[in-house]
Design a binder for these strands. Structure first.
Lengths: 205, 205
DNA sequence: CGTTAGTTTGAGGCAGATCAACTTTGGTGG
DNA sequence: CCACCAAAGTTGATCTGCCTCAAACTAACG
């Protein structure tokens, strides 16, 4: 598997430990290499001039990130932030270069990853047009909680991932909870039956 | 340049000529190779169950398309349609395979292309949240008309690219025309000063 | 146990979608 | 070449999903 192989070749690179909220790189910065998540969770956020934030992607254990800008050879279009205590490995430009030259298999893996991410991004973009806020929030709850069950997502993060506001997320979650489709536990929540929950994503609340 | 080089190696592949409106592949189909635009213009559209369409990308002369699904190894997430009389070269799976194996330089070019497209898609997604319909429409007018000046874009196409409706596009264009920022010419239009026009994208209409 | 970040709930407003009726454009076929 | 007509565009009126603003509540952490 890709990450395992990459991991081996960077095991003795520069490491860095961050706590929740710490910024790894800022939108507009020029990439100086790649990042590898050894442990923890990282979020990619775009912040508009009017302050509105969009939660673009999540990177978890064994993910690389910063690769989009690196290969596009453009400044970062969004900022990356640690969502929990996170341990990173920083892969220098030189090492990246070496990897790219000697490992066409890794190149192909990266190609596939970007192709999938592009598809997802475009479907999410379409979803902002053709789905209700309710449906997008339900889908985001399922995606974020099932893929990252240990993370306690804030309403604000869910809102920024789904393209909504934290007040609307609260209302949808209250409604889902009243219907017994999720179980609120403090700030966290549980999903019982993802399929069933998703089937309610088109229903009014 | 990438396309020139690719072009040479596919010059004697299967050709196809289409007229406006003809569909090249449907959402859900499995990729059977790549497509190369020899002449004309192709649009990539996603259609939701409720009928709402989203205009995702444009491919013009010397562009390849269908590559996202091909490399993601997933079915097409959107349909491609000829926007004018278009001549295509169809590159078979076998030829694609050969190219990928023997041309790491092309692989890297594809990687860069996907990385840029992902950035653009994510910024457009963010734009749907943090910009007004007015701003997005102005930006779409500039993008579509400056990049493809010979195409007579319909209000519907502009709407589906900007994430809006054709009525709203009409209203914005009428307003811009009254302000002398664009010149309507039948169904077509002209942009005088793109920079100036964009500076009005944040202004009410 | 105090403080702050996060959450809930309600009320009100509005950007832009939707619906509807009418006009214009430009391709085409007689 | 012109008359026709379907497709595209315009304009006005109405409606609504969801955002915004506001105020009170609560969880969690040092």
């Amino acid at each position: 598997m890709f990450y395992k192989r990459l991991k081996d070749s960077v095991e003795n690179s520069h490491k860095k430990t961050l706590k929740r909220g710490e910024i790894i790189y800022h939108e507009g910065d020029h990439p100086e290499g790649l990042y590898f998540v050894k442990e923890g969770l990282v979020g990619l956020f775009h912040v508009a001039e009017n302050g509105k934030e969009t939660f673009l992607r999540v990177f978890s254990k064994d993910c690389i990130f910063g690769h989009r800008s690196y290969f596009a050879e453009t400044p970062y279009h969004a900022s990356s932030v640690a969502l929990t205590k996170t341990e990173l490995v920083i892969i220098s430009k030189e090492e990246c270069h070496k990897i790219c030259e000697n490992r066409p298999d890794l190149l192909k893996e990266l190609l596939k990853m970007l192709a999938k991410d592009l598809g997802e991004a475009e479907l999410r973009m379409a979803g902002l047009q053709d789905k209700t806020a309710n449906a997008r929030i339900v889908e985001s709850l399922v995606f974020l909680k099932l893929k990252y069950p240990n993370q306690v997502w804030t309403r604000k993060e869910i809102a920024e991932y789904s393209g909504s506001t934290f007040e609307t997320v609260t209302r949808v979650m209250t409604s889902l909870s009243e219907k017994g489709l999720i179980k609120k536990e403090g700030r966290d929540f549980k999903i019982f039956d993802p399929e069933n929950l998703l089937s309610f994503s088109s229903v009014e609340y």
